[in-house]
């Protein structure tokens, strides 16, 4: 109540405007700073056999799912990222398009790309993958794989993955 009266007071209008501008600047400044600092952490491995756009997608998805960037936070523009990483903007655009298709981010025309809701995403993504797994299991069964063989295969894959991660 008092705050409201304060802002209505003519003599305080200048202060009010300055405060609002300062808040906006600091807000944007922090965002940009975090983003720039955060996204230099996207490392592109030129020796990896994974396509560049795929690496960007994976790193971004990881960043988003980890919560390091918050929902509705603005991501660097395609051009910013292209300049930072020295990668064709078309490649960055491709990664962003896939991220949008998979609901990790959403785009507002003329404004930019923003982080989607991570919790919601994770469950959406997992639902998608569950469906795919279901189909795959059906296919393997049709190909003659027994339940035991399938379970053995899954354990094998997981063990291998765990070994790979230990080596990294």
């Amino acid at each position: 109540m008092c705050l409201f009266k304060f802002f209505l007071d003519k003599e305080c209008i200048t202060t009010y405007n300055t405060v609002i501008v300062l808040i906006v600047l600091i807000h944007n400044g922090t965002l940009r700073f975090t983003l720039k600092g955060g996204f230099v952490l996207i490392k592109i491995d030129n020796n990896s056999s994974k396509a560049i756009y795929e690496q960007i997608y994976d790193e971004m998805a990881k960043l988003i799912l980890s919560g390091a960037v918050k929902p509705d936070e603005q991501l660097p523009s395609v051009r910013e990222l292209a300049g930072l990483l020295k990668i064709s903007p078309n490649t960055i655009q491709k990664a962003y398009r896939f991220l949008e298709m998979d609901n990790y981010i959403y785009t507002i025309r003329g404004k930019g790309n923003f982080v989607g809701n991570a919790e919601k995403l994770r469950s959406i993504h997992i639902e998608m993958l569950k469906k795919e797994l279901f189909k795959l299991i059906e296919t393997l069964q049709r190909a003659g794989m027994s339940d035991d063989e399938m379970l053995k295969l899954i354990k094998e894959i997981l063990d291998k993955k765990n070994d790979q991660e230990d080596l990294c």
Binding site: R79, G83, K86, P89
Partner: peptide, 13 residues
């Protein structure tokens, strides 16, 4: 070179 790519990317986009 960095500046150059920056400008080029912007124009391409």
């Amino acid at each position: 070179k960095r500046k150059f790519w920056d400008v080029l990317f912007q124009e391409v986009m």
